[in-house]
Design a protein around this nucleic acid. Structure first.
Lengths: 269, 269
DNA sequence: GCAAAAGTGTTAACAGTACACCCATGT
DNA sequence: ACATGGGTGTACTGTTAACACTTTTGC
């Protein structure tokens, strides 16, 4: 038998196959409102959640996501789903892990591939449009002793989940539920794990830069870095540390009530 | 309709489902032979490859791997496959990425989940047992300008693949084939990508420690670190840098023709 | 005794931290 | 004028690199 004959007779239905999905943690840096035209807004990290309209977990909040189509890669699936839910077309998404536990979906075996997308350009955040089924939630993920708390807050909804770390091998973060509210499926765990992975990886500046637009100011860069890692930086030091990662252009941003900021592009490695 | 009624009527066959597989880069630190009873052996990184006995890619070398069973997670699948091919039962394996390109398998759509396992305890390496269909190959993966070369050497076989980097976003390394020999499927690319991911992650000492046995000497630790990163360390400095990652026990290894070495355990984070 | 690995001490260079300070702008 | 973010200089501090050196063992 030749290779061609073999392939013609190959029967794919002889193996059980799980369903394969992508779930995306869509994050945005939300500017808090200020009454001062000069003052820079406070930055908060928000995540986009979708209220499920069907079973299973009907009416519960979940990460956007869906099943992989036959003619797309997982990254393409994640980008497509992000676009369908937010209207934003990210150039790329960051993989944060695969969730293959047996009972994570009550319908059938589903392997979920998690991704993170950080939107750094201004998004129209439908923060309080009553009846929509997608909403942005402020994210706080904090550790106290061995307990992790995920707080998700929209203007009228608070989802609080308490977890512990179930494994921390090979730089992967995995959590298990202790008490409190839950998102649909294991999405509270996927969200926590993806956020931890993003935070850890973001100490490599290239990863933050991959989320920024082509041209950006150093303050923008610093804001995104601070929002992701939830840690303030001293400007002078941040600039020196990131000096080798960026190239200055000769363009400036004006009209902000203070000295114009130089635009930079990322330096290729 | 209730959630239970929904689940009873749910038809999983309505969606196309790809096949899901795990492929494992099984690495070992091979000791080169020495004629001096006192002298420490030179350390080389080796990878376990399997000669395919069936179509497709019949008679070509490939990474061990196989399809996910319904009652196991991807990690369990990778551990099972590692055991089936090497006889070694690793406590855990490190995920290094998902390969979901459309045409990577000529039979049908297959999503491959890549893992790395580093065996740090002495393995019986069947380095030159003629007719076996699994063999250890010395690994060299080097970069020159924008060209990457993967050299795999067994005693009588040399597989040399030349590649370029196809993407380097979000800390993921992806390569594309330029010229030379190939492993079956896209396994040359998976191997290169997994090795790069391992090397980068290994600058976090916890990841190297995750591969070491419960008790180890600092020289063992340093050897594994050096083999993975292919970079010699100055002992005095290595010890100071890793001091906060390990806890000394009061056991010693004797009988090596020189001063006994203290055994250490990894310090939990 | 001696070769080899185990393990320590000393110094210099470098990168990161904290903070004081000046610059350029729109209202 | 002035508040604000943009941007720079400097002194201090902790980490890392390089290398010289001592200790302990089996043959």
């Amino acid at each position: 038998m030749t290779e061609n004959e073999f392939l013609q007779e190959y029967d794919i239905s002889q193996f059980d196959r799980p369903s394969v999905a992508a779930d995306i943690v869509v994050l945005a840096i939300r500017n808090e409102l200020t009454d001062n035209y000069r003052r820079e807004a406070n930055k908060k990290l928000s995540v986009l959640l979708v209220k499920r309209s069907d079973y299973p977990f009907k009416d519960q909040w979940s990460l956007p996501g869906g099943f992989l189509l036959q003619n797309e890669t997982l990254e393409e699936c994640a980008i497509r789903k992000t676009f369908e839910k937010t209207g934003v077309h990210p150039v790329s998404v960051m993989p944060t892990g695969v969730f293959s536990e047996l009972d994570r979906d009550p319908r059938t075996r589903v392997i979920s591939n998690a991704f993170v997308s950080v939107l750094t350009e201004d998004v129209d955040i439908p923060y309080s449009t009553g009846t929509r089924e997608t909403k942005w939630f402020d994210v706080e993920f904090t550790k106290e002793n061995d307990t992790f708390t995920l707080m998700l807050r929209s203007n009228d909804i608070t989802i609080k989940t308490v977890m512990s770390e179930s494994s921390h091998k090979f730089g992967e973060y995995r959590y298990k539920y202790i008490s409190g509210d839950k998102l649909a499926f294991d999405h509270s765990l996927i969200l926590s794990s993806s956020l931890s992975t993003l935070r850890k990886n973001a100490d490599n500046y290239y990863i933050t830069l991959d989320f920024l637009p082509e041209k950006f100011t150093l303050t923008q860069f610093q804001s995104v870095q601070e929002a992701i890692q939830n840690k303030p930086q001293i400007t002078a030091n941040f600039r020196r540390k990131t000096e080798s990662y960026v190239t200055p252009t000769d363009e400036y941003i004006t009209g902000a009530g203070h000295r114009p900021a130089k635009l930079y592009t990322r330096k290729e490695k």
